[in-house]
Amino acid sequence: MDKVLMKGNEAIAEAAIRAGCRHFFGYPITPQTEISAYMARRMPKIGGTFLQAESEVAAINMVYGAAGAGVRAMTSSSSPGISLKSEGISYIAGADLPCVIVNIVRAGPGLGGIQPAQSDYFQAVKGGGHGDYRMIVVAPSSIQEIVDSTFLAFDLADKYRMPVMLMGDGMLGQMMEPVAFPDTTGVKLPEKEWATTGTKKMRKPNIINSLYIQPDELEALIKNRWKKYIEIEQNEVRFEAEGTEDAEIILVAYGATARIVKAAIKKARENGIKAGLIRPITLWPFPSDVISAAAKKVKAILCVEMSMGQMVEDVRLSAAGACPVHFYGRTGGVVPIPADVYDEIRRYV
């Protein structure tokens, strides 16, 4: 198939449509507005629903409703908007409903800035909303991977009946790269027997709910849900490892930052420093095992993020003291440059 140049945001929207998403509810915010704009153009032509809600809170609750009716539903926003959606995400997790939430991260806290950042890692991975729940978080690093991850996000959401977040940043949302879309004609979406589609007097009513007043009942439900989370941790970890076999130092980075780190690693290798990369693609479930194994073989790990240090906490938990874990970060919308990452590498070898 012919490759076309597409912005990350447009690629997400097109991939979602091809993955069978016909219900999109959004509210504009830089740097992800192209997702809404693309959906607004395309959905009416293919019999889908695009709705610009009155607020982010409304948009996520529309997703809640559509997901309950068994359709593939999506919303997208950027950091401050995701904070507003967090209540709804918790309800969706509590009601065991599948949906995809896109966060094209910008700098925070507060309204922050509109330039790229990764300072929403904690919010995405540790639960922005309340309660005992998990959300699968996929963090692609190129526009082609954005396309592949969008399909994956919908599939995982349906498979495990839970919200999945697709996390990028302003750079990935705005940049264009060549992409090819897989042929999805004839692909059938999974049946959803639990969906509230009307009984037609043929079956008992399905009920979607996140309110359980009896502690015993709620505990049993959450414990049962946790079995699913453990299964996901065992089966759905995704990462990229490069140059780790002979590495004396391993860098850990995700998303757009991993691309900058790759340029720094290339320079380090040219100068005789054996540097490698572990790039988590799923931020939850986190690739703890591969980092734990690597930590036992290297002089040091260096975690690089566009934040003051969030994923580094999970890297340290995984390394469990087997080697020092250093951190280099830029924040507030400042993107690290390869030369600075290279200087950091040289400090620790």
Binding site: L5, T30, P31, I114, Q115, G170, M171, Q174, M175, M176, E177, P178
Partner: peptide, 10 residues
């Protein structure tokens, strides 16, 4: 291989 990155925003 190609990439295209615009300035955006302010």
């Amino acid at each position: 291989e190609v990439s295209w990155l615009p300035s955006y925003g302010p």
